[in-house]
Amino acid sequence: MLPHFSYVRPETLKDTIRHFNTKGAALHAGGTDLLGCLREKIMDVDKVVSLSALAELCEIKKTAGGGLSIGALATITQVAENPLVREKYPGLAQGAAEVASPQLRNQGTLGGNLCQKPRCWYYRGEFACLRKGGDICYAIDGENQFHAIFGHDRICAITHPSDTAPPLAALGAKVRAAGPDGARSIEVEKLHVLPKQNVHAETVLKPGEIITRIELPPPGENRYSAYRKVRARRSWDFALAGLALALETDGGRVKNARVFLSGAAPVPWRSRAVEQAINGKRLDAEAIAAAAEAVVEDADPLSQNAYKLNLFKGVVEEQLHAAARAA
């Protein structure tokens, strides 16, 4: 049962921003994350600002430069099933298809998926955790088998829950954001913030700022992309370990590889070590083994999630072999 809130459904982006730019306002796109957060009372919201009258934010369209522009309100299902996405950006289509459950994919939006709150059971549960304004992160010394092995800095060990952000980041996507100070572009890779930067926020969006579109650059020749998610059950589950991969091949050698991990860190985690291990190389057994070893360099596993080290190695191996076969 949700607490009280007022509700408004503006018909223009300008009004939306005006309403959203007040204390205690929350955005409702698909609502799948927001309503859960309200039920759990993890944030104080007294006004819900609905985006559902903003039809122009639902469209998926080609851009003049040959890329793709996805409205922030496109549902996850629309992204997963869009022919252009499937053909040109298969990693994104695969990521979208792995999100939650069919009903939630039918309802949740791409913009919402990028902005969702973490799924840590302490954060969502009746624990006054650091991220919610309490004193400690319960996961550091608690039941942390599903938590981060990178980027937590022993401050807050959430993993970022999105399955679309890692492939979007790997594909070099940007979000367009509109706010009280006007519009700007943000690379998806730079959208999310680490606990050491700000433990109370998940994104760099400023008060009143809304993601309006997600823009993918032209896919380029010979570009391969994929997303793989290992999970404890096959539907409605978040990643134990996930890998988003985008790379190009040139004469059998990898270039411009971009590798982002899910289930790994409080943000979609870029693995430059893996990128370095394969860029300029042929994807042979040796390079793949080296990349697998590289993926867990600098990892800082907690008491119960060291299994993720070899799990990530395994996923990297499996996916690079698949990429090698596809190339």
């Binding site: 059971w121 549960g125 319960y138 039941e143 409605w236």
Partner: peptide, 16 residues
């Protein structure tokens, strides 16, 4: 999953 080493509270109280 109980929060065995800290609060003793239940961590997973939902179908997710």
């Amino acid at each position: 999953q109980l929060d065995t080493r800290q609060t003793g509270k239940l961590c997973n109280r939902n179908w997710h």
